[in-house]
Design a protein around this nucleic acid. Structure first.
Length: 551
RNA sequence: GCGCCAGUAGCUCAGUUGGAUAGAGCAACGGCCUUCUAAGCCGUCGGCCGGGGGUUCGAAUCCUCCCUGGCGCGCCA
């Protein structure tokens, strides 16, 4: 990132000196092959048409304007159709080590968000059963994205939307009551759409232990209501614990009931009516989402008087924006993708821009065991819970796997592979690099080898191929944060970390550190791996994965 | 039928606001522990980037038409 920032300034100055504009589509990027420089720009090619000159001629002019005026740049080459390839001096790259060691945990922080406020809402599973592995993926993505956006300069708030009103909760109450009656010998069967999981029977049994037979004598609605509240509380406590064990945080737990009870849904209806965006037809209340490119208009209140989910979702998002968020990010299961156009329409009807709502779709997780698929369905009561999986493979492994793929592609999660301590399971590879570095520093402490302070290390000994590769990679870290933040893609961090860890392992194998040829080489290499240690720690923190001192 | 996502090495996947000879890990094969952690390193093998056409100095990336797989199209949640 230093190199980019530096070169951009130099290039703009040179363009100005030649009376050339900065082209809109100018890129400054590291080429795939370092023979084409550390950074290359297409500026000359972009200017050719406008300036009426051959791209190579413009490139030569730029080269002449920059050459020998910028002490950080060692060499410039004009290549191919008109690329300008820049090579920085070794000392320029070495400076990265000092920067990282001075900045520590702050290295890689950016100001992309410029303090704007963003809300990330994730998981938001109905409290009708334990979280399963699919929720786990959404949790990992949401939690990590929040960390990344914070690092990128956004003011982030994280939230769980609790669907504590509505039909699903009623079914939960009825399911528990049914099991409760069975517990006391009633000869009845669970109704068709009731929840079938064993945990419902556990809830009924505990409820019976607490209340005895008293619910049997009550009005059924009242008994179901008690069952519902009891079930919701216990299940919600379980969800909170599962998330905690998964190292996932929600700052705000937002209750759907609080919307309806405060009349916010009605307020939203009123506001939409006033704007002409809601209308009555066939006894129902409709939202005119076709005004905003949705396929069809959508029902808000059914002719039987019930609210649709969509209605409270609009009120909920209205509330989000009224709380002052510039950007709202929702993380949904990919099977809800058809819901996006109407939600975007709603956001616009609320007076916001469509891009102030960002929906991240998380594809389903295929849970496998030894290559064989394990079925999942909350309703059928057959699923692997998140807690089971985390208990079996650990939070770090599970999180790293979830964050190692684009969220919008299906993910095979093989329990047997994830437990393996091999490269099939890259979390160990990255953590091991961190632990290895710490091991060297422990040894340095034991044997009294001094570690130079950040500003005082003489880094000129960092001269091997492995040194250079590591220096380049360290300088790239802020880019990785940038692309993860811009693309809302935590997996960029995972890929970056795997590369950095690989270079560290290679370095470790090829270069002695504590037993290097002389003291100044030892000191320089300690400074370098200290910088690597900081970056590994910072990156792992963005994923919510621990950085172990030893393994 | 319409829409969204995906199709890149034997497998799992990166790379898509157009850049130079398309990458990584795994698997396979061959090497490396008297050495700071071998949970590691080095090397070899491996490709019509689903297919056709188009745009341009340049396409895995953009446009278009097909093929294949997943998902979604309710006054369900």
């Amino acid at each position: 990132m230093r190199a980019y920032t530096h070169l951009k300034a130099t290039l703009e100055q040179a363009l100005a000196s030649l009376n050339l504009p900065v082209p809109d589509r100018m890129t400054i990027e590291p080429p795939k092959d370092e023979q084409f420089g550390h950074l290359a720009t297409n500026a000359a090619m972009m200017l050719a048409k406008e300036a009426g000159k051959a791209p190579r001629k413009i490139a030569e002019d730029l080269k002449a304007a920059i050459e020998n005026t910028d002490p950080a740049i060692a060499r410039i080459e004009v290549a191919g159709p008109g690329f300008l390839n820049f090579f920085f001096t070794d000392d320029f790259w070495r400076q990265t080590v000092t920067d990282i060691r001075e900045q520590g945990a702050a290295y890689g922080r950016l100001n992309l968000g410029q303090g704007r406020r963003v809300q990330v809402e994730y998981v938001s599973a109905n409290p009708t059963g334990p979280l399963h592995i699919g929720h786990g993926r959404g949790a990992a993505v949401g939690d990590s994205l929040a960390r990344i956006l914070r690092a990128a300069g956004w003011e982030v708030s994280t939230e769980y939307y609790l669907n504590d009103a509505g039909r699903q909760m009623l079914i939960l109450g009825k399911s528990i009551f049914c099991r409760y009656r069975q517990h006391f010998g009633a000869d009845i069967e669970l109704f068709d759409d009731g929840y079938k999981g064993d945990y419902i029977m556990d809830l009924a049994r505990d409820l019976a232990a607490e209340h005895g037979r008293t619910l049997l004598d009550m009005d059924e609605d009242e008994a179901v209501s008690i069952c519902r509240e009891y079930g919701m509380k216990v299940i919600l406590d379980g969800i909170k614990k599962d998330l905690q064990d998964f190292n996932v945080e929600h700052q705000v737990w937002f209750s759907e009931r609080s919307l309806t009870e405060a009349g916010k849904v009605e307020d939203t209806f009123e506001s939409l009516r006033n704007k002409g965006m809601a209308f009555d037809q066939d006894g129902a209340l409709w939202f005119r989402s076709t005004d905003f490119k949705d396929d069809k208009d959508r029902v808000l209140r059914k002719s039987n008087g019930d609210l649709t989910y969509f209605a409270s979702d609009i009120a909920y998002h209205d509330d989000k924006y009224k709380r002052g968020f510039d950007l709202v990010i929702d993380i949904w299961g990919a099977d809800h993708h058809g819901y996006i156009p109407r939600m975007k329409a709603a956001v616009q009807a609320l007076g916001k821009e469509a891009d102030q709502l960002e929906v991240i779709l998380v594809q389903l997780v295929n849970l496998l065991k030894g290559g064989e698929q394990i079925a999942m369905s909350t309703r059928a009561g057959k699923f692997e819970t998140l807690a089971d999986v985390v208990g079996e493979v650990g939070a770090d492994s599970a999180r790293f796997i979830f964050l190692s793929r684009k969220s919008d592609s299906k993910l095979d999660f093989d329990l047997d592979l994830v437990k393996e301590k091999s490269m099939d399971n890259p979390v160990y590879y990255v953590q091991y690099a961190y632990a290895r570095i710490n091991s060297v520093f422990r040894k340095a402490g034991e044997t009294g080898v001094p570690v130079p302070a950040p500003g005082q290390a003489d880094l000129s000994a960092l001269d091997t191929l492995e040194d250079k590769l590591l220096l380049r990679c360290l300088e790239q870290y802020p880019y990785a944060v940038q692309s993860a933040a811009r693309g809302f893609s935590p997996h960029h961090i995972s890929f970056y970390l795997r590369e950095l860890a690989g270079l560290l392992h290679r370095y470790y194998s090829a270069n002695k550190i504590l037993t290097a040829e002389n003291e100044s080489v030892v000191a320089a290499r300690l400074a370098l791996i200290d910088a690597v240690r900081h970056v590994l720690a910072n990156g792992l923190d963005l994923l919510g994965v621990s950085a172990p001192e030893s393994m």
